[in-house]
């Protein structure tokens, strides 16, 4: 079945709401507006205002309310408009959701799912465009997901809700309109493994989320030049699947990590470090990285494009790694 990432996500939400009376959705404009990216369009009419709850612009309160409701036996799905806005709820996510289970000696788990958009590419400027998922991947107690395909957009929500602990799902804003094929017998996907999206022998390109289409395009361009790149989609940013990374790099002996976040202290730094730790003796070249320029993402189209990882940047980094 041909569908979009947005529709796949909506189908997952609809099924979750239909399957489990403990599940409810809350966030800014998820109801009457239909979701700021139209993901939850129609769900208010279908499930009513108790289960599709418009909230005030109070990120800390409604995320914290999700923490409390989860501890009280519900299965809340909290939507935050963008990762930039989630900083207003950082206290509840880091100090409570991620912490209470361990700090309470295992007494109170927090089965909370938080969804938010991330990333740039739509000329929304610096306060709507950053990629801060690496910050969340830093925190023990959280599971961090980044669906990059229509199938993962459809399939990741159910296992996230089944997880007894907090899960954050990052939806890259540029992916919502992306089309893809969905098997008719939609099933939950597993969350523990990275996926090899394209097999290759010459180097490993590691990425996730909104960069996956760019990296696949770069792999096609590299193929035309005789370089066969293997493309790994991390899918789960915490915990990272070290085995899939190591298995691939042990074969290809070269790796480039592509991440829309900034490189300094970022997720690409973590992935590169793990590859170096695990595969040092297999490597034939330094692990390369492609990230965003170390600037707040600007509005003007040419400046935004210059700040973000582009297909040509990935190709250049790959060619350097195999040179």
């Amino acid at each position: 079945m041909r569908t979009t990432y947005r529709d796949a996500m909506r189908a997952a939400l609809r099924q979750a709401l239909a399957d489990d009376p403990r599940v409810f959705l809350m966030g800014e404009d998820v109801g009457r507006y239909g979701g700021c990216f139209a993901v939850s369009l129609g769900l208010l009419e279908e499930f009513g205002p108790e289960r599709v709850r418009d909230t005030p612009l109070s990120e800390s309160a409604f995320v914290g309310a999700g923490v409390g409701a989860a501890m009280a036996g519900m299965r809340p799905i909290v939507e935050i408009m963008t990762v930039n806005f989630s900083l207003l709820a950082l206290d509840q996510i880091v100090n409570n959701a991620a912490t209470i289970l361990h700090m309470s000696g295992g007494q109170f788990n927090v089965p909370l799912v938080i969804r938010m958009t991330t990333g740039a590419g739509r000329q929304l400027a610096a306060q709507h465009s950053h990629s801060l998922e690496g910050w969340y991947a830093h925190v023990p107690g959280l599971r961090v997901l980044a669906p990059a395909t229509v199938e993962d957009a459809r399939g990741m929500l159910a296992p996230a809700l089944a997880d007894p602990d907090p899960v954050i799902i990052f939806e890259h804003g540029s992916l919502y309109a992306m089309e893809g094929d969905l098997p008719d017998d939609t099933r939950p996907v597993e969350l523990d493994h990275a996926a090899v999206r394209r097999p290759g022998r010459d180097l490993t390109l590691v990425t996730y989320g909104g960069c996956l289409p760019k990296v696949l395009a770069a792999a096609d361009a590299l193929s035309a030049e005789g370089v066969e790149a293997e493309v790994i989609d991390l899918r789960t940013l915490r915990p990272l699947d070290d085995d899939t990374l190591a298995e691939s790099v042990a074969r290809t002996h070269r790796a480039v990590v592509v991440d829309e976040g900034w490189r300094t202290g970022g997720l690409s730094a973590e992935v590169a470090a793990r590859i170096s730790e695990q595969c040092f003796w297999d490597l034939d070249a330094p692990v390369g990285r492609v990230g965003s320029a170390e600037v707040p993402i600007p509005y003007a189209k040419h400046m935004e494009e210059a700040a973000l990882p582009q297909v040509d940047d990935v190709v250049a980094a790959a060619l350097e790694a195999v040179s």
Partner: peptide, 10 residues
Amino acid sequence: LPVAVGLALG
């Protein structure tokens, strides 16, 4: 406080 609100909501 937000957690208390959520417990009550649940």
